[in-house]
Design a protein around this nucleic acid. Structure first.
Lengths: 142, 142
DNA sequence: TTTCGGATTCAGAACATACTGAAACTTCGA
DNA sequence: TCGAAGTTTCAGTATGTTCTGAATCCGAAA
């Protein structure tokens, strides 16, 4: 499964893919290491990163000392919301550029202004789109 | 200008940023090499790639043998359209996964199905969003 | 306190990427 | 046909990234 997880290292993609289909849905570090044929070190690093991003959660399983992990429900939507932050970063950079070049004749700035406006548009519309998705999910019977 | 051009090497980001603000808007290879302090080899490779992606165009300037380049008008929208292709790739991979696991009890597939549905939603809505942007651009007086 | 299952850290190996510089090539005018 | 301007190609270098393995750490049970 070619998981082109933008900005994720290959093993992180495999880890997420596994958590998407594994049975049961929660897995211990050892389970993951075994399933992905990865070192314990890798798993530790990756789970720490994914926890920090909020993409996975810890789960406790009675009778086992080990830590278990599962996908955070609704994480894909959250992920897209986070990505909106990088749209904003680009838009803000464009704004700084426009401010810095304010002394130039206006038609020279058309290109940069259009770029900025486009990103501003996306930045504003993406949250709407995600809300629309959540609303649709809500009304669909499971 | 921190150009976090997803999937573009640093120098490509700088090249695009330069074409966004340079005066005049078309630049020769030598101009670019000079402005970015890059080797002629880099410029050649990068312009070839950007041409292939349709993000820049060649321009002829009378009286000069050199090739000039300028940003393709409307390229940012096109870029987003292309990115829709990677949404589709992910969605298709999820579909293959669902087909391969069709024998499993349905509730085990909930996670993967929701993932697929979300990407399918985005894949369908993004083009609408871009059309909405173009329509708005149209009616705005330049 | 010791022991042991389990987790974490990090130096280093293997691999991948981005760019340069120099040589080869193309094109056009003389 | 020659020469010069301009461009392309590519081997090599520098730099980054990803993962492993071994040492270390932590905490619970004995």
């Amino acid at each position: 499964m070619l998981f082109a997880d933008q900005g994720a290292q290959p093993m992180m993609g495999r880890l997420l893919a596994h958590l998407l289909i594994c049975d049961p849905p929660h897995q211990s570090s050892a389970d993951l290491a075994e399933a992905l044929q990865a070192s314990a070190g890798s798993i530790s690093t990756l789970t720490r990163q994914l926890l920090a991003m909020g993409m996975i959660q810890k789960a406790v399983v009675p009778g086992s000392r080990a830590t278990f992990f599962r996908l955070t429900p609704g994480m894909w939507v959250d992920l897209m919301r986070q990505r909106n932050g990088s749209l904003r970063a680009v838009r803000e950079a464009a704004d700084r550029g426009l401010r810095a070049l304010a002394h130039r004749p206006t038609e020279q700035l058309d290109r940069l202004r259009e770029f900025r406006d486009f990103y501003l548009f996306l930045e504003g519309e993406m949250p709407r789109l995600l809300d629309a998705w959540l609303a649709r999910r809500q009304e669909t019977p499971r």
